[in-house]
Amino acid sequence: TETAWISLVTALHLVLGLNAVLGLLLLRWQF
């Protein structure tokens, strides 16, 4: 079960990281 939790947490971190990068790019394009 630990491996499943680790994979789930890493997936969440990757998604949050991608969202942060996309958000910064969108803000930079708007201004």
Rank of each mutant, 00 (worst) to 15 (best):
T10L: 06
V15A: 15
T3D: 03
A11W: 07
L14Y: 10
T10G: 05
L22V: 05
L18I: 12
L12W: 10
L25F: 09
L24F: 14
N19S: 09
V15W: 05
Q30V: 14
T10Q: 02
S7Y: 11
L26M: 10
Q30W: 13
W5V: 09
V15P: 01
W5S: 05
W29C: 11
L18G: 05
S7K: 06
A4P: 00
G23W: 13
L25V: 10
L25R: 06
H13Y: 15
G17W: 08
G23H: 00
V21G: 06
V15F: 11
I6W: 10
S7A: 15
H13M: 11
A11K: 05
V21K: 05
V15D: 01
S7M: 13
L8R: 03
W29D: 05
R28F: 03
R28W: 08
W5P: 01
A11P: 03
A11M: 12
A20V: 14
V15C: 14
T10R: 09
G23V: 15
E2N: 02
R28C: 09
L16G: 03
I6H: 01
V9N: 03
L8S: 08
L12Q: 10
Q30K: 14
A20I: 14
L12C: 03
R28N: 08
L16P: 04
L8N: 01
L27M: 10
V9Y: 10
T10M: 08
L24R: 05
L27P: 08
V15N: 00
V9G: 03
A4R: 02
L18A: 08
L24V: 11
A11R: 02
Q30C: 09
A4W: 11
L26N: 07
I6N: 05
L26S: 04
L8T: 06
T1I: 13
W5H: 03
L25I: 10
L25K: 00
L16Q: 10
L12V: 06
L12I: 11
L14N: 00
E2M: 00
A4M: 03
L27I: 11
G17I: 14
A4D: 07
V21M: 12
I6R: 03
W29E: 10
V15G: 13
E2D: 11
L26I: 13
G23Y: 04
L22G: 05
L27Q: 00
L14M: 07
H13R: 08
L12S: 01
G17D: 09
L24W: 00
W5G: 03
L14S: 04
L25W: 13
G17C: 14
N19D: 05
A4E: 14
H13L: 09
A4T: 06
L18V: 12
L16Y: 04
V15S: 13
E2L: 05
T10W: 05
A20K: 06
A11Y: 01
E2K: 04
L22H: 00
T3Y: 01
L26A: 08
G17Y: 03
L22E: 03
L26W: 12
V21D: 04
L26G: 06
I6L: 10
I6G: 00
S7F: 14
L14P: 04
L27K: 01
L25E: 02
G23L: 15
L22S: 02
